[in-house]
Nucleic acid binder design. Structure first.
Lengths: 298, 298
DNA sequence: CAGGTATTGTAATTCCCATTACAAAATTTG
DNA sequence: CAAATTTTGTAATGGGAATTACAATACCTG
């Protein structure tokens, strides 16, 4: 049973309908009466926003009465205004979120076009959306945790994301002491958990196809008083419910798999900010480390 | 009882408020309680669509109770959920009205204090430069190697870049057979080298602070007839002299360390291209793999 | 132009859903 | 560790918005 979680996507309560409402309207524009057509036109003219308002506003804008709107909605095949609106919202979200998502139909032509450039464009869009949506306060708060030498940091990730945890880890150990990489196999977890207290910070990477084990680990960490920092996608891993800080990133690309690029960018930015701010300390550490490396190899 | 009549006229009832709700949330994220913050995060992470749903849906998605949503809305300064939604709708519509200018208008705070945005900009520049400079023929040639099931792939990386090798590896094993991860410590290398022949492909990640060991490994591989594919920075690792294919990427960021984001983007694009082209085969493999996983866990 | 039909708005009704009151739970504090 | 305070969910309530019934109006059609 892999699909335990239902929360992922509740989408499309009534997804039997595949046509967009705009198309639907165009198809039976003739079956409509004069005022109904008027409503339809008003809706289409700045689709779909008026449809999201209350019936009364829609009616006023179309200069008709409320029941006319309802009749139109009925003729379009909806059982009520709510259902109609729900469909509009789903449509809008789908269009807005990812006009290019997962492995659907239009892949035949990838060869001919410049796939790489296309992929890059998606990644860039992910980056700017991520940066735009990320609360700076959250970013700063995490930086504060990372910069505090009295706190021990623990990094964990899922099947694919553990790579990111690893990337973060390798940089952090250059910047400071007390950084631990949490092994991917969950048998060793109790070793980590037993020592956790409110001084500790647990950084978890978890994107969709969320891994239940990570949730367990996060919960236990949080119960022991540790601060949990979560790096996740825009739909938020369940871990977010116990996390003290959440960094959501965009992961949409025209691929069967998700992109980790945005996450990596945030991780790098954190490392950069951290080392820029405490450069004196970091430099001392790097120097000492190099000296030790030399001693070992000579 | 009190007359909230003023809104009778449909003109933007609360247009005095100029801050977007997203900004508003970011500002008083600290005044919020834990569950309220959770709601706020859920809203921000795919803004603003959940806010357009009914309270119940929003609450369910955020895994809190309806009143919590209402309290959040209250704290943000709205007299009710309707007013809140109205504002979201207005915002959304306004954003849509100006589709072109929207890209970078709110840069009131940029240069000076927004380090994250600055970092992101550098990364984006790296990405486009990388894509622009990369010979498509080289990209394609590597894809051909990766797609050939008769060839065995070996992945190796340096101190920091081995993370990328790892990321690549974890995806490749989902796509095809005969993929090997070369351990980071050089004592085990001879094990790999001894079996190499002209059928084999060695993928090496090496960016500046180039590691001499990697050069050794590359040379030996090449001497045994293997194809060497190199991912490196714009200044080219010495490995390039023995490589049959070189993928150079940009790594400049305002940090003491280099950025691996561009490299990761290329890696992901290769994986995406690969699985898009051979989807039938890949799908079979993924299915079979899932079945096995289930068998193991049951 | 009269009678019939289709269309539309007004006004009453119903029902959903935001709201609120209150109790339980969690957290903080002495 | 108990009391106080804050936070949160449950369940009841009220208001407002969707819906419906019906009358008024427009539109045919002979």
């Amino acid at each position: 049973m892999t699909s335990a979680k239902a929360k992922g996507k509740k989408k499309h309560a009534s997804s039997r309908r595949r046509l967009s409402i705009a198309e639907e309207i165009n198809r039976n524009l003739d079956n409509l009466t004069r005022t109904e057509r008027q409503c339809a036109r008003v809706l289409l003219s700045n689709y779909p926003f008026i449809g999201l308002e209350k019936v009364a506003s829609f009616a006023e804008r179309a200069e008709v009465s409320a029941p006319t709107i309802l009749r139109l909605v009925g003729k379009l095949g909806y059982s009520g205004y709510s259902e109609f609106q729900q469909h509009l919202r789903d449509e809008l979200e789908e269009r807005f979120q990812t006009p290019l998502t997962k492995h659907e139909e239009p892949l035949g032509n990838t060869q001919s076009d410049d796939f790489l450039a296309e992929y890059c464009r998606c990644v860039e869009r992910n980056l700017s959306r991520t940066v735009k949506a990320l609360p700076r306060a959250e970013f700063e708060a995490v930086l504060l945790l990372l910069a505090d030498p009295k706190r021990t940091l623990h990094l964990a990730g899922g099947k694919l994301t553990s790579t990111l945890a690893d990337y973060f880890y390798r940089h952090l150990i250059m910047l400071r002491a007390n950084v631990r990489r949490i092994d991917n196999d969950s048998y060793a977890w109790s070793e980590h958990l037993v020592d956790l207290d409110r001084r500790d910070v647990v950084l978890i990477f978890d994107v969709r196809r969320y891994q239940p084990e990570l949730m367990d680990f996060a919960r236990l960490s949080s119960e022991r008083g540790a601060s949990v920092v979560l790096f996740t996608d825009q739909w938020l891993s369940p871990v977010s419910s116990v996390a003290s800080h959440v960094i959501p990133v965009r992961i949409d690309v025209p691929s069967s798999w998700d992109s980790a690029v945005s996450t990596m960018m945030i991780v790098e930015a954190m490392i950069a900010a951290l080392s820029n701010r405490n450069w004196a300390m970091v430099e001392r550490r790097v120097k000492a480390r190099e000296k030790l490396t030399d001693s070992l190899h000579s």
